[in-house]
Nucleic acid binder design. Structure first.
Lengths: 270, 270
DNA sequence: AAGTGGTCTAGACCACTTT
DNA sequence: AAGTGGTCTAGACCACTTC
């Protein structure tokens, strides 16, 4: 145990590193390796692995800092710094006195992280969905490219309209890798209430952690106008969004048309 | 337990707090105050004050962590945590081996933090401006409300077009509080090269640190269409942005119309 | 009372930059 | 060699939650 270390000045990092973490060491000896990686980054990677593998599932409590420090044979401070970064990236949530929880999309807090359309007046409600089409198909070239698939690979295609307080506001099309979301059916989508990302997380073990969005302005064509109950030619926001799961793997392409008659896209630049 | 330390465990934080930081103490005695504020937050506030007051100007080096720790009579670790947060908020930039610098808008890195319009192809260039109108006026009610002024207060109005690689892409109107930007003239704007925020920072001591943006889709009216050399009715992104300086004080209202023929608004959701 | 995350300290050493 | 930020440790204590 060595509770009262008589040893004055060995390098504790080196000892700990050699004991539990890989040889990609932080301070092993006189010559440091060219691919230097801080200990806490290695710990962060290990924790991320456990999150990705499902060892700790969304909503669950992860082991305490002290426990993780013992497991990895590092100090609590090092674990803390690793978890700090994971919390900053919204992979986990810390709660003083209770512990650290795996983030989940089954939470009001998470609902508006990816949906930035806000009502001009009143408090935001989560929209209701009406599914128009759900089918399996082969990935067109552009979809394949964005999802890191081969052209012609199986994908699931979804088209739906979203209603805010009964008003049709968003029409969007989604493409999902068929392999990752094998077994996703229209019935399952319709019966599931709440954000699709919650379903993906619970039923398919795939958690969206990041997204890249590109926005343009377009005019509503006949189809979109009909679905959104607007005049043809009405200006709409056109969003193309690619969402990523662990390892920066793209697992969703979403193309949406947003009516901004009563809503606006909100963005805070920090 | 207390195995080793002969030190009669006084609370060092309390001592330090009483010595240099305000009475809003972290751990002064048996009963903690209801308005608890960690030491590092107090240090952060003090550093922010020095930034705001101009004691350290944009681009300059601030005192080292050791020096600040001595000044405030706290440990280096506490200063470090304060600066960590300031760096996360883009108020300062750390550079290993050199020191910590006050952030500035006179930097390529900062140019695209508030301007999210990216070319569909090719690398982003900073646009050139053509000023159409610069005048002093009285704030309309809506402008006054957003800038936290009284209706009728003096404001500076600016209208300009921005060109990317010679193509007119943005037409925008700005309103600035007359008091803060007293002496801002069309001549000064025209002769100044580079982002306006650099001018505001250098000449008026006002640094934008945050902005809130709302985006809609609209159709180009005759005026916008002419300036952007587009057909009337072309869909445009319509942005309303309020920028804030220290103390969450709003100091700029900007309403822009963005052509998305060859550009798109880019947003990363983390 | 016990366990968790949150704060604070003190000291050591590393990586990077400049002198 | 000296100075800066960056990492790591060990230990103390605080605030919060639960038992």
């Amino acid at each position: 145990m060595n509770p009262v270390p008589p040893n004055p000045s060995q390098n504790p990092a080196a000892a700990a590193t050699g004991a539990a973490v890989g040889p990609t060491t932080a301070a092993a000896g006189p010559s440091s390796s060219p691919t230097f990686s801080p200990l806490y980054q290695q710990i962060k990677a290990l924790i991320t692995q456990s999150l990705q593998s499902g060892e700790w599932k969304p909503g669950e409590l992860i082991p305490s800092e002290v426990e993780l420090a013992n497991r990895f044979k590092v100090s609590q401070g090092t674990v803390r710094k690793a978890i700090d970064e994971l919390a900053a990236e919204n992979l986990v949530m810390r709660r003083q006195g209770k512990g650290t929880f795996v983030s989940t999309h089954h939470e009001a807090r998470a609902h508006f992280r990816f949906l930035r359309l806000m009502p001009d007046e009143g408090v935001p409600h989560y929209p209701e969905s009406r599914f128009i089409e759900v089918k399996r198909m082969r990935a067109p070239a552009d979809v394949a490219r964005l999802l890191d698939l081969k052209s012609g690979d199986a994908v699931i295609f979804i088209k739906r309209v979203q209603y805010f307080d009964g008003v049709p506001t968003i029409v969007e099309e989604l493409w999902l890798p068929g392999l990752t979301f094998k077994g996703l059916t229209a019935e399952r989508l319709v019966e599931y209430k709440g954000p699709m990302y919650g379903l993906f997380e619970s039923e398919f073990g795939t958690r969206m952690i990041r997204a890249a969005e590109k926005i343009r302005a377009v005019c509503a064509d006949a189809g979109a106008a009909a679905l959104l109950q607007l005049a043809e030619g009405t200006p709409l926001l056109c969003s193309e969004r690619v969402s990523f799961t662990y390892g920066d793997k793209p697992v969703e392409l979403r193309r949406g048309l947003y009516s901004t008659e009563r809503h606006h896209y909100q963005n805070d630049l920090n």
